[in-house]
Structure formats: structure tokens, C-alpha cells
Design a protein around this nucleic acid. Structure first.
Lengths: 209, 209
DNA sequence: AAAAATACTTAACATTGTTAAGTTTCCAAA
DNA sequence: TTTGGAAACTTAACAATGTTAAGTATTTTT
């Protein structure tokens, strides 16, 4: 099966080229400028060739969204070393905001755009694994904080995780989609967002009572 | 100036027709199906006529987004009658979620889509008045709750308001953009979202300590 | 060397927002 | 009442877009 193997490698090679080109466009020109024709230009194939390697544009965005989660995971690596779950939780929140503001296009495709979820719906195993993994980290940290009696135990951990995720996502997505821009004067938006996280952490931290 | 007056009325009349048609498409077929040509078909004019009454499509979406805020304000009317600021705050959060889940298309254009903000940037007075008004209600309620010592006073009210707004917006927008759909089994998402709000309110309510 | 499968392209379709250039309609002054 | 000009409206087109059907090369298998 030497030939089939080489073919398979080539197939993957071009797939990678397509994704590299997509990523380049995505990074340099943003979501809206990732078009099939521009991708085709970059890899020097005809536009229709792209469809031999991806079902449709949504599948490409699914891959980009996965890479975003990878990047996010990299950024969160160091957090594992923080012993105190409540400071770890705090840092997770701050990291989330930093990631979103520093990589708005990635954040958008990960958590706002519909495209990757449409691709997901067409897939065999249509669990949203990237999201699940990220959420697990949050839930584990919350559980640990509750077990150690650092925050109030709740009947349903999911609701707490969703509340916290919701808050940071809400802040980042409102910022990214320009809902803070024309809203009175906010001298330092990022600082304010961090204050919001601070406030929440201060409110749930039992050691501060 | 009787004629000029009549002309002006006609101008407004057609403007209204365009908005009515846009709204009809928006409600019945969703954001993506509000196209200039479909609007033109409905009002029985050529597509280019639309451009005599609106600068571009973004301006139309700005109007739709305003109507969304109107609808939202209507829904929040009864809240003014609630004396206790903390229960009012609670109800505001629940209302927000109910509104978002019941009117996802409106919510999308109000808080997620870029189109209305692009139109806003082109306008003379480019303050985001609808957003400011809604946020003021939230801030006032928070202030009142702090003054009455029902929740912990914070150095910066803005950060608290943003945290709370962020949380409910985060929940609704994650739901609308399908980030909860393929995430393990959630039997009753709406109930879970309300639990999240419940948790936050329970956490900040000083009377529960 | 012929047949079959694979890889790739050309050309087209149906949409989209938007604009330039025309045409018609209407009102006011001559 | 005719004429001139402004206002309202339309036709036709442009430049994109994602996607598909049908065709042509290329490569592998028989």
C-alpha cells in the first residue's frame, strides 16, 4: 500500500495548504475576507479544487475555530500550576478576556460566528469537543473551589459555570461587536472589564467575608 | 408650503413602507433574508428606490435594531413598579433572558450584528442612545440597591453594571449562536440560564448572609 | 496499450449590495 | 399653456460571493 499511502499524504498536504492559506487570510484580512477564490489564488489552484478537500466553507471555518481553541489552550497551560482554585479561577477569567481582546477574529469564529456550528451539525460525531474541553476546565476549578469551601457550594455546578463563562463571554463579545464603543466615555475599557471580573471574584470569595 | 409638506409626508410614507417590509422579512425569514431586492418586491418599487430613502442596508438594520429596543423597553415597563431594587434587578435579568430567547433575531441585531453599529458610526450624533438608555436602567437599579445596603457597595458602579449585563448577554448570545446546543445534555437550557441568574443574585444579596 | 479511477479546471448559475446613467413625472415660472 | 428644471423612479450594469455540472488532463490499474 505504498502508493495509496503517498496519495494520502499528498491529500493531507494540500488540505494543509488550504488551511494555511485560510489562516493567513483570516489573520491578515479578517473573517469576511476568507473567500474560496482568495484561498484558491494563494495555493495556486482553481476555486473548485477547494471543494475536493472541504465540503464547504463552513468546514474550513470549523478548522479555524479549532485552531483558535488550540491557541487558547496554549495560553491557559500555565494556569494548571496555580494551586489555589480561586486564584486560578480569577486568572482564567483574566486570560479569557485577554485572549478575546488580543485575538478578536479568533474569538469571533470560536464563540460568535455560526459557520463552525453549522459544520459541526453535519459531522458524524457532532459533539462540540473544543467547547466541552474548555468548559471542563472551568467546571473542575469551580468544583475544587467549592470542595475546599472557598466559594459557596451551589446545588447545580453547571449553572455557576455558565454564569461565569457567560459573564466573561458577554464582556468580550460586547466589546468585539462594538457595543461599548459609542457608550459614553470609557477611558480604559480593558481595565473596566478586568474590574468586572474582579468584582465577581471578590463577591464569591468566602475568604473575604 | 402645502405642496412641500405633502411631499415630505409622502417621503416619510415610503420610508415607513420600506421599514415595514424590512420588518416583515426580518420577522418571517430572519436577518439573512432581509435583502434590498426582497424589500423592493414587497413595496413594489425597483431595488434602487430603496437607496433614495436609506443610505445603505446598515441604516435599515439600525432602524430595526431601534425597534427591537422599543419592544424590549415595552417588556420592561412593568419593572418600574417593583419597589425593592434587588428583586427589580432580578426580574430585569430574567426579562432580559426571556426577551433574548423569545426574540432571537431582534436580540441578534440589537447586540450581536455589526450592521447597526456601522450605521451609527456614520451618523451625526453617533452616541448609541438605545444602549445607553437600557444600561441606565440597570445602573440606577444597582445604585439604589447599594444605597439601601442590599448589595455590597463597589468603588465603580460601571464595572458592576457591566458584569451583570455581561453575564446575561453572555448567556443569551451563547444560546442564540448555538454554543450550548452540542454541549453534553442540557435538558432545560432556559431553566439553567435562570438558575445562573439566580445564583448571581443569591450571591450578591446581602440579606441572605 | 487500453480502461478506469483520480485530480483538477472551465464555465456557469444564482445571489448579493451598490452605482451610473437614463427616463418619467410633476410643479412652477414664462 | 408651454417650457424648463427638479424630483422620483427605473434599467442596466458591476463586481463580488458560494457552489455545482460538466468536461479535461493525469495517473494508476489491468
Amino acid at each position: 500500500m505504498g502508493i495509496a499511502e503517498r496519495k494520502g499524504k499528498q491529500k493531507l498536504e494540500i488540505r494543509k495548504q488550504i488551511l494555511d492559506a485560510s489562516m493567513k487570510l483570516f489573520i491578515e484580512e479578517g473573517f469576511d475576507n476568507v473567500t474560496i477564490r482568495k484561498i484558491a489564488d494563494l495555493i495556486e489552484y482553481s476555486p473548485t479544487t477547494v471543494y475536493l478537500y472541504f465540503k464547504d466553507k463552513n468546514e474550513i471555518f470549523y478548522s479555524l475555530h479549532e485552531m483558535g481553541f488550540q491557541k487558547f489552550a496554549m495560553m491557559n497551560q500555565p494556569l494548571a500550576g496555580i494551586a489555589n482554585p480561586i486564584t486560578r479561577l480569577h486568572k482564567m477569567g483574566e486570560n479569557y478576556i485577554e485572549f478575546g481582546l488580543a485575538n478578536p477574529e479568533f474569538y469571533d469564529v470560536m464563540f460568535i460566528q455560526r459557520a463552525p456550528m453549522k459544520a459541526l451539525a453535519e459531522m458524524a460525531n457532532c459533539d462540540w469537543t473544543p467547547g466541552e474541553n474548555a468548559l471542563k476546565l472551568l467546571k473542575d476549578t469551580i468544583s475544587e473551589a467549592m470542595e475546599k469551601k472557598l466559594i459557596m457550594p451551589a446545588s447545580n455546578i453547571d449553572s455557576v459555570a455558565m454564569a461565569i463563562w457567560g459573564m466573561v463571554h458577554g464582556l468580550v463579545s460586547l466589546a468585539i461587536r462594538e457595543r461599548f464603543d459609542k457608550l459614553g466615555e470609557i477611558p480604559d475599557l480593558k481595565a473596566l472589564m478586568h474590574q468586572s471580573v474582579n468584582w465577581l471574584m471578590g463577591t464569591i470569595d468566602l475568604s473575604l467575608r
